[in-house]
Design a protein around this nucleic acid. Sequence first.
DNA 1: TATTGTTATACTCTATAACTATA
DNA 2: TATAGTTATAGAGTATAACAATA
Lengths: 141, 141
Amino acid sequence: MRETSHELGADLQAAVARIYSRFRSERSDGELGDAAVGVLIALAKSGALTLTELSERARVTTGSMSQTVNRLVAGGYVERDRDPADGRRMLIGATPAGAEIAAAARAHRRSWLDARLAELTPAERATLAEASALIRRIADS
Amino acid sequence: MRETSHELGADLQAAVARIYSRFRSERSDGELGDAAVGVLIALAKSGALTLTELSERARVTTGSMSQTVNRLVAGGYVERDRDPADGRRMLIGATPAGAEIAAAARAHRRSWLDARLAELTPAERATLAEASALIRRIADS
DNA sequence: TATTGTTATACTCTATAACTATA
DNA sequence: TATAGTTATAGAGTATAACAATA
């Protein structure tokens, strides 16, 4: 198949939208939503981050992120601390409860997907691994 | 590379989340949101659909879809007509204005992605084409 | 002045539950 | 009774604009 579809953009977008919708419907009905769990996962990976850093990673405005952090603080999942080196900055860090939620959410979110991937052939999994890297590259370009 | 990453599930999910977030930030700020445009695109592909069909395709409840259709009706983008064959069913169809929005939204949503895909090698595009089909299969399984 | 962050307001999207109408 | 759809209510997520504090 040397000739790839001229509809690749449409196909890829449709596939992404479809599986993303599936992720949403498969997710556990915990007390926290997508954006809030995304913050906890970012903090688990990188340690404490400023509000601006969090908003850039999620590609939302600082106003939006500040409100997501408000919800997390209210639930006791993160703490805000003023940066001693720059009084304008707030460092947002996960509490033990928040770190626990992040680990559990990552495991649960992937259980459905991992089961599906196990049904594929090794070659198919290799294709998806290469595609994941390509998609990341495109998304971050 | 016979050994694919044991983190494939995490990698794939992260890649999908990342590009989906990018789609969102690249989308035009039209008057209609994602769900509403999704309905118009479904109607453009399939013609008039019932509320239940629309809600199943979007994987949302009929209550949610009814409200999305309300917004589309208010804007003049779709019409509700009672199914003559079954008085319980409503057939939702796009108006000319709705069909126009669907076509424009599809083209615009893809313009950023198509530009990125054009920068890839043919082999990379082939990988993404195969991966798209695999992702669709997983999402619909 | 520029940067960082917060809040008020408003909108989209979604779910649940109670409801009506038709089969 | 079962199916199809609507509405009321509530909550997450987001954006914009106005604002305060710090650099």
